[in-house]
Design a protein around this nucleic acid. Sequence first.
RNA 1: GGGUGAUUAGCUCAGUUGGUAGAGCGCUUCCUUUACACGGAAGAUGUCGGGAGUUCGAGCCUCUCAUCACCCA
Length: 1048
Amino acid sequence: MAMEKTFDAKTAEPRIYKMWEEAGAFRAGANATRDETFTIMLPPPNVTGHLHVGHAFSQTLMDILTRWKRMQGYDTLWQPGLDHAGIAVQLMVEKHLAETQQPKRTELGREKFLEKVWEWKADNGGMIEQQGRRLGNSLDWERSAFTMSGASSAPSGEKPGNFHDAVLKVFVDMYNKDLIYRGKRLVNWDPHFETAISDLEVENIEVDGHMWHFKYPLAGGETYEYVEKDEDGNVTLRETRDYIAIATTRPETMLGDGAVAVNPKDERYAPIVGKLCEIPVGPKEQRRLIPIITDPYPDMDFGSGAVKITGAHDFNDYEVAKRGNIPMYALMDTKGHMRADGKPYTEEAATAQRIANGEEGFDENKIAAMNMVPEEYRGLDRFEARKKVIEDITSEGNAVMIPNPAHGGGPGSGSGAASDNDADRSPGRDPGPQPAPEFIPYVENKKIMQPQAERGGTVIEPALTDQWFVDAEKVVGPALDAVKEGRTKIMPESGEKVYYHWLENIEPWCISRQLWWGHQIPVWYGLAVSETSPELQSDGHGRVSVDIYQHAETGQLAWEERFCAASEDEARQMAAVYANERIPEHFKYVSVFENYAAAMSFGKKNPDHYCIYRDPDVLDTWFSSGLWPFGTLGWPEQTDELAKYFPGDVLVTGQDILFFWVARMMMMSEAVMDDIPFHTVYLHQLVRDAQGKKMSKTTGNVIDPLDMIDAYGADALRFSNAQMAALGGVLKISEDRIKGYRNFTTKLWNAFSFADHYAIPYPGDPVRPQATQTLNKWIIGEVGKVREVVDEALAAYRFNDAADALYAFTWGKVCDWYLEFSKPILQGEDAAAKLETEQTLRWVLDQCLILLHPIMPFITEELWGLAGTRSKMLVHADWPTYGAEMVDADADREMNWVIGLIDNVRSARAQVHVPAGAKVPLLVTGLDAKGQSAWDNNAVLIQRLARIESLGHVDAFPKGCVTIPMDGGTFGIPLEGLIDVASEIARLEKTLQKLGKELGGLRGRLNNPKFAASAPDEVVAEAKENLRLREGEEAEIKAAMARLQELG
RNA sequence: GGGUGAUUAGCUCAGUUGGUAGAGCGCUUCCUUUACACGGAAGAUGUCGGGAGUUCGAGCCUCUCAUCACCCA
């Protein structure tokens, strides 16, 4: 073979990958020699996503495990696939439509729009799978799944699949088991996409905000004594007030207030609890009065201690309102604008007042229909409305006022017309007599936590809407137990605590999204009908009159009947059965419409049609990806793959989706399959830049894994990934490190180049020789050790340990020592030794390839092919099972002695500045039998590597000699005349110092009677042996120094 | 505010049941010696965040303080 100077990753990698793929090397079960399976499900990336460093990292780990197990003969499956990524993809397509001047989504309508999404997917989807190939991922691509496969909207060219069926089946099953319900809940609403999003898709970001302080006047001009006390109970403020002060960061929501709450322990407001106060905004004549209630939620020390309760626009308020049965008035529409629907404000306000007074009952639908936004605010954007509310309140004098700091010195507070009672809010500055206003509204600048959509960054608006929920509390039990009982293990262990904490406090999971791209909820709505309904009017001919639809026009839930079915046909049948049961032999047809309006308008004209329409919403993306562990294997069909590969083995994923995805797979898998989805979860952190910062386009510190592959090869990136994969560790990717591992690949390449250079024959797969040479026995033992280390490390998911061990072995043992040691033999005359060394060398190099292959598949496969004719590709080579039994203790000791001697001679030479090229004589005193034999066996190696000319036995060293104490004899380099006495003394002194420190510690321990008494025997023995050796060295060095001092 | 984790060489980080600290990169000096300058050889640098405790012995266990990061409110 004629080897290039370095490995050309750029051209070799695609070639090698193609070879693997064409040979079907990654197919499920390829190379299997045993029944045990090993399954990993690739977390499905966004169908239109790109490979980023996080993918590259976790996919490297998955590939290492998969390749390792495949070589061990397991029946492996690494299952690929893509996620339809509802909101993200819909957003991209909408953007694309706008950019290409195509009609908007709403103009296209649902069906046409979905066609466009599928087109987009066909054009742009799956790129990440190509990128994954560049990393070397050994996925069974032919099995690639898609969460929307089998959807009715899918075009004919799409790869067939039944994931869609699986999703609908699970929904229907869970619905029938009452695990899924529909309800009006406060959810995170994205006003830009006009959809609900999950808690997990919301980021709370600290922004500069304001806290406004307003007065809510007491009804009927009532007053009370407001008293503030300090910690010791001394009165610090006492005044008569006719209002209660409220602090808020969101004034626009005041319009929807249902109450003011104070803490039951708050004495300041005790006199007015149960009374009414006025919301100081809106038309003066229709000011609403709301009750002052008590609730544990308000923090007495925060703001004024009184909190306005707007159940429909704040999560905390929502809880308070539920507890207190306070009406929750929704103020905004789906776009985040103040509502413009409903009755005139005066009417609504009057109704609300009757409700507040307890004169009129209410339910959530009635409240939902009411629009409490006064006409002057209707239609305004929420932020504009905020400005206007603040202006209006302030101009009316209902803002809490404080002295103006810009006002300068002057008379005390209390003289401002609008602020007689504001002393409690004074920061204590003296107002001054400047022309600036003496008092200004009290507005605190404050950091507030603002909920923003993770995708798009829109400010999230809590909104009361009808949504579908999974009753998470009911399905969480088995998922919790699985981890508690150890059936599924989360690594690092800290992940388990986080998992418990979240699951034990789980909230209902909102699974409906007001989007089009996704699995449309398999629920059809029809009228709830009953012959006893007053709306049922016979027309005298046994027909039901159109009046039955009147009530339905309000769209109220009470009149809704639901048919949950996996298909439209089933839904029709259910509807037909239902309709016939209710009004026998009345409805002749069941007709399905796209929406409520169409159903109603047709139904009115055609009373013999029972009209139904499908819920327009789609399911949360995570609902479908929760089924990934079995949906990809063909479920609900009972396929062979399902039987074989489920449950899977390991899930490798980022810590950030522990809740999003991992917990949900656990819940869904237990609920649907009654089993865990995998026995191990390997969580890793976010991949950051070398400084530990998050990568972001705006910061410009994004590292593209494909750039790294272009520059250094996939193997270098993979090795770097493995090396930084310490369990639970922070992941900082550094280009320098990747470069370093590229150098490592070159080192490996050159080791083979060495074999090539010495024309070492490579007839097929080498077998391990029965070594007789110490050198060869030693390296074979080292191979055994490293294989054990690597297997233990990988079994424990300690990828960094595996990578480090292989690096240290390949470079530090094989290249640095073994290849160097082999040179004199390969060049020598001893034919038997030469043959054995050739055989050992090529066997050792092959073991490097095998052991490194899971981490660095490309270069190892390339070298495997270059080095000789093989029976199998490396990807399917047999993983070794040998181990430490190959270690020959004598060989091990001897070679370590040789290496130690060479190290010491080199070090001594360098420090006394013997020219690197010069060959020097070596002397020895008191060489014992073991030492003599070690020398004799390895004299050629030592002489070559330490540049020694000859060995002379002496009784005493001559003056001016560098001393090297070794176990079994003391060596010396006679350098009279050449030697720098002072620097040699300095060198010895330094060694002595180090030794002294060690000796101090050892003696201290051994002299302590308690040490001998309580420490294990082997530790004591080790310390004693250590002390003996060190004392010997110390004596030698002292003697050497004495000789030098004589000389000096 | 609650939770989790971190603090070890100039930088980035390992350090598995407590036995006396390591790697890569960087740095200094020397070397183009026939596998490799993406290399070889030698070398320097640490009161393991501060304090206290348990122990014969603590980077590791306990407590406490400080700083930082992330997650959830």
